[in-house]
Write a protein that binds this DNA or RNA. Structure first.
Lengths: 204, 204
DNA sequence: TCGCAATGTTACCACTGTCAACAATGTAGT
DNA sequence: ACTACATTGTTGACAGTGGTAACATTGCGA
């Protein structure tokens, strides 16, 4: 266990440091210029050092995207209401948590769904993304069992739910859907529309 | 009017050529490496020539994104059904056209909604994007007047509709929502769910 | 016809991703 | 303890990129 004080030749735990530095850059770099050399620079290490831990830049980005999916899943799990009285009360907090995660970590969220880096992210993305998808899927399945949502292919309904929230999140990140307050009117209305589409119609 | 045959010193209409070449690259470059030098190369011109027509790379990308929005708007306008018998019949073809546009022009569609290039695209995007948004808005307004959709803030419902289709399109581009056939089951189901959320509930 | 503005080219700069060669360090086997 | 080796970090190079400045060529108006 080397002492951190005297900057030894070997960093000690450079891999983790690189990942954390990468997350930092994703967090405060609004201009999305993610350079491997900048990561190395911030980590106080030479520009080629990261290559001892990651085969190339895309690999690091994949790693970061993975962490992003993990965090998103945790955020959703943490937002799940305990005793929802209606489908709306169940879906709303999770949706808000999802959108909030996206607007709080715009660069990271974009990275998660970007196929721009040589298709790598997209390739490895399936499993983790589907883990998030499964949260929605479970929610709707239970709702269907409880008789609160329509009897339609669950997969299609989950797709609708995910796509809607995903779309809202990206529109919010892009500043098109005013993300002033997360609890803004269009957002609530959009989610309400989704819930109406899922729920079994009630007598007016 | 210079003859195109003998490659004069002055290209003649380089600006348009650059834009078209850019669109070509967007079309067949799946790997999303959009280099200004490659554009110049394909246009058969020196690597600095584009700077006489565009201040920088971002400006060209903004231009391309604009064209993308124009084309999307035209595609949607062309897909509008003539005499829809229901809200579903009205929304479905437009939605399919939207998703098809995205999956047919993945790189272009991504560019349209990417704020990665120095926020330029996002800044200039508003007007054109809202033009697309207005198509949805008009559709829902007319539906509300006709009494086929719920009386809720139109803006929120239009947001829901757009976000859902936008999300579906991106998920399809990312290959998460199997885009095998555009008329796939999850896609139809998702749109159906949307329509149910918009429409006034019918007696079962 | 002459001079200037527009447009294209060349040469250069800083920067990036990536690789090869080299240096320092930890560690296993004797 | 000593030595050979694998690990990890550094330096220096390469090609490719966005961008700028200086220069060349052309078209066009006075």
């Amino acid at each position: 266990m080397t002492d951190v004080q005297n900057r030894p030749y070997h960093h000690g735990d450079l891999r983790r440091t690189i990942i954390e530095t990468g997350l930092d850059i994703l967090r405060d770099e609004k201009n999305w210029q993610f350079t491997l050399r900048e990561v190395a620079r911030r980590a106080g290490v030479s520009h080629a050092a990261p290559y001892k831990h990651f085969p190339d830049k895309a690999a690091l980005l994949v790693e970061l995207a993975m962490i992003g999916f993990d965090r998103l899943r945790e955020a959703l799990a943490g937002a799940k209401p305990e005793a929802p009285q209606s489908l709306f009360e169940e879906i709303m907090p999770i949706s808000l948590a999802y959108v909030a995660f996206g607007t709080d970590n715009p660069a990271l969220y974009r990275l998660m769904f970007s196929a721009e880096e040589g298709r790598s992210v997209g390739m490895h993305l399936d499993q983790r993304a589907l883990a998030v998808f499964d949260i929605v899927l479970d929610m709707l399945s239970r709702g269907q069992d409880a008789g609160t949502i329509r009897k339609r292919p669950v997969r299609g309904q989950a797709t609708a739910a995910w796509a809607l929230i995903h779309g809202i999140t990206l529109l919010a990140i892009d500043g098109i859907l005013v993300p002033e307050k997360v609890g803004s009117a269009p957002l609530d209305a959009a989610i309400a529309t989704l819930v109406e589409g899922l729920a079994i119609p009630q007598p007016i």
